[in-house]
Amino acid sequence: MEIVRVEGLTFTYSGSEVPAVKDINLTMKEGEFVLLLGPSGCGKSTLCRCLNGLIPHFYAGKMDGKVVVAGMDVTKTPTYVLSQHVGMVFQIPENQLFSLTVENDVAFALENLGIPRDEIKRRVDFALRAVGIEELRGRSPFELSGGQQQKVAIASILALMPKLMLFDEPTSSLDPVSAKSVVDIISSIRKEFGTSIIVAEHRVELLADKVDRVIVMQEGSIIKDGKPKEVFVSEEFTPYGVPVPKVVSMAKGVNRHLRVFNDMPLSPEEFEQGIRGFLYDKVR
């Protein structure tokens, strides 16, 4: 099953002359976990907004091409309908939370949809548990750390039980430890519920070994699309402002002297396996 189909998408914000994304073609299978990379301003956010209908319903501009998500044409479907299938978590945690208690924030979207109280209760419990923040239930978002706030934001979207979740730089304002726990939650959501996921992120170290596919954007276009190993190995990305995990750089460096890694490692664990495997083969 296909969850996303984008054909020839070009979008220019009103008031701007340069298109923010140009001629994007993209399909995504249900359950896929995609990492979207690219420097700030390369069109990652714009692409996400096109997928959940903020473009063209919230942001005005000139849109060409076709975007179909979960079987719906985004230009013809109101945002509140799309939002029940495509959830989006933004960069700044505090600007996505409106209520004075965590549970009210998780219930917020469900209340807006007029869902019966018993069902809201059930889904709030489910979302709080899935994200592992049941103990924060009665707290005020204002007293929480950035990382905890972002978890509340994730739970508030998860309560809608969307098929596709978009994360627009969810950790960029967080410290590394919180960032790691947020990334862990994202990958556990995908594992437990089979949710399709797109994460726009700079922290490749945390995500490289978890995603199925890496898409690299630059100046509004997709310039690379493939399995993480292929994408990270193929060339140095630094000139584009796309970082390569340190383990990949290390493995490449070692391979220049000794042919140790046939398979590119994406995490310290895989690096270790590579080295041990190499020594073991030598013994045999």
């Binding site: 945002t79 509140y80 939002s83 989006m88 933004f90 917020f108 979207a109 807006n112 508030s156 979207i157």
Partner: peptide, 9 residues
């Protein structure tokens, strides 16, 4: 954020 949380649906 209000928009994606179906405000006013």
């Amino acid at each position: 954020a209000m928009e994606v949380k179906c405000f006013g649906a």
